[in-house]
Amino acid sequence: MLGKLNHTQIERLLNEQVVGRIACQRQGELYLVPINYVYRDGCIYAHSGEGKKIRMMRENPKVCFAVDDIRSVFNWQSVVAQGTFEEITDIEEKQQALQGIIHRIMPLVTKPEGHPSHGITEKESDVGTNVELVIYRIRLGETSGRFESAE
């Protein structure tokens, strides 16, 4: 059976997942990349090093965000949302957002010493020495969700 997710189901899927995808566009070029994220108060919070995705979103802040829970070809849920990129510059807000991201993905990390680029490491001195983290949010607007199940 194919169907639409209701608002509660969309919120649950956004909260449960840890990896989503951001699609951005600049001067006719499309770019789609996976990100680790945490969902809170209608926003996707994430971080990145400086690079193509950040440059594109700074130039054109309109993005699309997608997340899935695929259990099999015939048992899945998917959410697609339109959103707006906002770089977080306030130090306290950046720290809160990064802490939320780290707490969300930490249970999935097997070797903390191997992920300083994500702000996850055993020694704080390993974080940010070569990589300047950009902390940002995607303020979600229109969302839609679909599912397929055998029931």
Rank of each mutant, 00 (worst) to 15 (best):
T121W: 04
F85R: 13
A150H: 03
R139S: 09
G114H: 07
V109T: 13
T84M: 01
P34C: 06
P116W: 02
T121Q: 00
Q77L: 12
Q82G: 03
L13M: 10
R104W: 05
R12C: 06
A46P: 08
V18Q: 06
R71A: 02
I91W: 10
N75W: 03
C24N: 12
P61Q: 07
R55M: 10
G42T: 09
T89K: 14
N15Y: 05
S125L: 05
N130T: 14
N15C: 09
L108R: 12
G49P: 13
H103Q: 11
V67H: 02
I22H: 04
N15V: 01
Y39F: 14
E16L: 08
K4E: 06
N130G: 13
E86A: 11
R146T: 13
Q99N: 14
T143D: 00
I88M: 08
T8P: 01
K123E: 14
V80S: 01
C64S: 11
F74Q: 12
G3Q: 04
E132Q: 14
N75G: 05
G51P: 02
I70R: 05
E132W: 02
L2Q: 10
E124I: 00
V73Y: 13
E16Y: 02
R26Y: 10
D90R: 08
Q95N: 15
G83R: 02
S117H: 12
Q9F: 00
S72N: 05
I135C: 01
E122N: 13
V18C: 12
R55D: 15
G119S: 02
R40I: 05
I22C: 04
H118V: 00
T143W: 00
L13R: 07
V109W: 11
N75A: 08
A150S: 08
M57D: 03
F147T: 09
R40N: 11
Q95A: 15
R71N: 11
L13W: 06
L133S: 08
Y39W: 07
L133G: 09
L13I: 06
E11V: 06
A97Y: 08
A46Y: 02
C24D: 12
H115G: 00
K4Y: 07
Q96G: 08
E142D: 14
T121N: 09
G83K: 04
R139Q: 14
N75C: 05
E151A: 03
F65K: 02
Q95K: 15
A97L: 10
I54C: 11
T89R: 15
G20M: 09
Q77R: 15
R58D: 01
I35A: 01
G128S: 07
E29W: 14
V79E: 03
N36F: 14
